[in-house]
């Protein structure tokens, strides 16, 4: 059997600090095929951004310790030399960031910033790169691209800036696009425009897309698979429909129940997850969610406190990291009113 297009295996990203080792990501594995979208959900500090930056090799040159394998289109990206990785970065794998205002350099014209990405990977003249830039700006829906190409980032609105970022990311026709909270800083109507654009471009170029977000609603709209992360590890992984209709572990339940949906009954109080996310320093043994989990009492003995559960298959392609008995889990879902 051929290897999947993107296969992350046992990825770990650790940062040594003076206070100890911060395990930002640990034991992370997932796969993604071309033309498909993987949604990675989690709260701040869950490791969703850190793990995805590792695919682009953005931790190289820092003190981060990255281990595991990232098989992408037949090569293990982690085994590449820095120079080989640089050649693929921005060409085969591209990334869009959360806040387009700070992600664009304030002193350079947007056109120069975009064509720079093209010139870095193509032996062409500046004139050709500029033409290609205008073409891309037009493609991502920026009006009057031949005029706006010479504007500076601060002269664009938030939504238009994110379009600039998308144009920059897609100018080399990457086969994998990582979008890190691309719509969090935007208004809802603009968010809808940007999500539509991303999906449209994905279909057009048959790109694989990793969508990192804290918003389950966004995931539900565009992802084929979902990976839920908590404290640096995957806690649930499966097809979007399975995971949203039959979430299988307490953290995912908590996430779903704490969202005030526009269609959910307002008479039901929101059910927040009590407590705060754990520190990534000196993680206790056992399940990272244990301290906040209301269901640990249903697990016999003190397994939740002492043993880290494995990420085990529940049904075909649906995995969860939880000691809770599956039948009990189904019961709990009905009981708490998760969809």
């Amino acid at each position: 059997m051929s290897r999947p297009f993107l296969s992350v295996a046992n990825l770990a990203v650790h940062f040594p600090t003076s206070d100890g080792l911060v395990r930002a990501t640990d034991g992370l594995s997932y796969t993604l095929e071309r033309g498909k979208t993987l949604g990675i959900v989690g709260e701040s500090g869950s490791g969703k951004s850190v793990s995805s930056s590792a695919i682009l090799g953005l931790h190289r040159g820092t003190n981060a310790q990255v281990s595991g394998e990232i098989w992408f289109d037949g090569t293990d990206l982690l085994s590449l030399s820095d120079e080989d990785m640089r050649r693929r970065r921005g060409k085969d794998v591209a990334m869009i960031f959360q806040d387009p205002l700070s992600a664009l350099h304030p002193y350079y014209r947007v056109g120069d910033q975009i064509s720079e990405a093209y010139l870095a990977h193509n032996q062409v003249s500046k004139r050709v790169a500029r033409a290609r830039t205008i073409e891309m700006l037009d493609r991502v829906g920026i009006p009057q691209p031949d005029r706006r190409v010479d504007d500076y980032p601060h002269q664009f609105s938030g939504g238009m800036r994110q379009r600039v970022m998308i144009a920059m990311a897609l100018i080399n026709d990457p086969i994998l696009l990582i979008a890190d909270e691309p719509t969090t800083a935007l208004d809802v109507t603009v968010q809808a425009q940007i999500l539509d654009l991303l999906q449209e471009l994905q279909r057009e170029f048959n790109t694989a897309l990793i969508m990192i977000t804290h918003d389950l609603g966004v995931i539900a709209e565009i992802a084929d698979d979902v990976l839920v992360m908590y404290a640096g590890r995957a806690v649930e992984y499966g097809a979007t429909r399975d995971l949203m209709t039959q979430p299988a572990m307490p953290y995912t339940w908590g996430l779903i129940q704490s969202i005030p949906d526009v269609t959910r009954s307002v008479d039901l109080p929101l059910r927040p997850i009590p407590g705060n996310p754990p520190s990534l320093l000196n993680q206790p043994p056992g399940c990272a969610f244990f301290a906040r989990c209301e269901y640990a009492q249903f697990v016999p003995g003190d397994r939740c406190a002492t043993t880290l559960p494995d990420l085990l298959p529940l049904s075909d392609g649906h995995l969860k990291r939880c000691h809770l008995d599956h039948d009990l889990a189904s019961y709990a879902v009905v009981e708490t009113g998760a969809i």
Partner: peptide, 13 residues
């Protein structure tokens, strides 16, 4: 700054 990360992500040397 974020724009340095962007510059690296573009594959610049």
């Amino acid at each position: 700054e974020d724009y340095i990360r962007t510059a690296r992500a573009k594959g610049l040397t």
